[in-house]
């Protein structure tokens, strides 16, 4: 007997017809991202960065270019290299976040936006000047201290570097002890 299965299928469609719609009209409204969302607008705190280039070393694609000069002063750490260039090529970035994971000073964070489309590839490279003045709305990816504080980049509030916190503050004495023991 044909037709019963089709009617049952139509019953399913009718049930779904009465359910609220789950799609949104994107440019007018957009779905919220989780605070951990690994977005495009990288957040970089120059005060913390020492120019160690760990991020460039951790990057699987090698798309971070850092040029330093030994004359800068990092506010929390003291001596540091002055960062002359810190270019991130977003055209090749795959947003894996390993650079953020590698940063020993919690200076680099993933961003929270996803609308950084450009017409030219050259414009996809974030130069250091842009990185300096970009809004500091970091993603909480790999930064559990922000999660415990309840920071949410979607609220639109910028996070200054003093409040970003460190996920494990290295104890100088302990590090010295470990260093002595290992040699």
């Amino acid at each position: 007997m044909y037709g019963i299965g089709v009617l049952k299928g139509m019953a399913v469609t009718l049930k779904n017809f009465l359910r609220p719609s789950f799609t949104v009209q994107y440019p007018e409204e957009s779905l919220p991202q989780h605070p951990r969302f690994r977005g495009q607008d990288f957040v970089w705190y120059e005060e913390r960065c020492t120019g160690c280039a760990s991020c460039a070393k951790y990057c699987p694609l090698g798309i971070i270019r850092i040029v330093t000069d030994p004359s800068g002063v990092a506010t929390p750490q003291g001596d540091k290299y002055k960062v002359l260039a810190f270019d991130i090529d977003l055209g090749r970035c795959m947003y894996c976040g390993l650079c953020v994971e590698g940063c020993p000073y919690d200076a680099l964070h993933m961003g929270s936006g996803f609308e950084r489309a450009r017409y030219r590839r050259q414009e996809l490279v974030i130069p250091v000047e842009e990185l300096r003045r970009m809004p500091k709305r970091p993603s909480t990816w790999f930064r559990p201290q922000m999660e415990t504080k309840g920071y949410d980049p979607r609220m639109g509030k910028e996070l200054p570097w003093q409040e970003a916190g460190r996920h494990e503050a290295p104890d100088v004495e302990k590090m010295k002890e470990r260093w002595v023991k290992e040699r």
Partner: peptide, 18 residues
């Protein structure tokens, strides 16, 4: 979509998780 939203909570990405 709901599963991908949960993955976004876990690791911040929906498709390429790492």
């Amino acid at each position: 979509e709901r599963i991908l939203d949960m993955f976004e909570m876990l690791c911040g990405a929906r498709i390429t998780h790492s």
